[in-house]
Design a protein around this nucleic acid. Sequence first.
DNA 1: TCTGGGGTCCTAGGACCC
DNA 2: TCTGGGGTCCTAGGACCC
Length: 360
Amino acid sequence: MSAVPWVLHVDMDQFIAAVEVLRQPELAGKPVIIGGNGDPTERAVVSTASYEAREFGIGSGMPLKIAARKAPPDAVFLPVDHAAYEAASADVMQTLRALPGVVLEIIGWDECFLGVTTDDPEDVASAARAAVLEATGLHCSVGIGDNKIRAKIATEFGKPRGMFRLTADNWFDVMGERETRELWGVGSRVQKRLAEHGIRTVRELADADRAGLLSEFGPKMGAWYHGLGSGLGPSVVDDTPWVARSHSRETTFQQNLTSASQIEAAIRELAEQAFDDCLAEGRPVIRVHLKVRYAPFVTKTIGRKLTEPTQDRETFVAAAVAIGRTLDEGREVRLLGVRAEMEMPASGDSAERTPVRGRI
DNA sequence: TCTGGGGTCCTAGGACCC
DNA sequence: TCTGGGGTCCTAGGACCC
């Protein structure tokens, strides 16, 4: 065997719950549910549920009120503690970065890609798992692939506390008959649109008419989805530090806001915080976005370019408030968010962007 | 049952320009 | 009556990720 480049995807097992159990060992083996303030009667959702809690049908994104109904009497609800998870995350990443010969690309709190040239990727994966466990007491799983897409998907088959290899050789054996929804970057809406074209499985996507996909999804996404059916994707692991394009603050109100003055006050507060996050990076803000959720299912986002890039807080806040004044009167607001979009440093913009939303 | 909070990227369509 | 052809920029909204 000769050394060739591999992509490893490292994903922490039930990361947030595991960090909590580490600090409170008596929680081990119990259904643990982390979300919001830890009060299951509040408007908030589950951040992470331990494997024990998942057996009761509780999972990420579920409203806490629902989780409370499904949970057994011995379930423990805990508040989200960002600082603790960030510290644990930093320990994990530092440990992985120290492995010999690897390039590390962080894609989230609890997951990253490792690029490594080796003739034995399983050996590197084992070493990574052992190192993380030794340094942090936390377990992880590793996907091994010949590109990022396959590595990322492989991890699901390795969980928990294991590893799995997915490459061009076994792609269709493993994924061919599965639903398109299992592909990274295909959500429920795209799954549905594909199904309307008779495309339900991964293999059907790979075999689909390319022109049809381009006309349904546009030149970029159409081509991307088509390749995704065959497990195609980028294989370069990039360790250049991530630069945020925007910062936002949003809040779900326990009681809906009903008056214009309440709404304006909330916009001010959120706008100041979002703006300050940008200011802390020393980068001018060029756009403001307001996100509003009116009672059930209606979320609106309204963006405005500022007349010029600004580092003046009041200029930004005033722009956010101005959008707020255009909102329909008499509607109760249950969620409000303000996003500040920053000027990007001029760069020779990398040609290979992966259109999977969020950090990659 | 009724939905966090942090993000990124893509597309469509209109305005405007030559 | 019918309606260039190319381009850029902007807004609004959709979709997805962790």
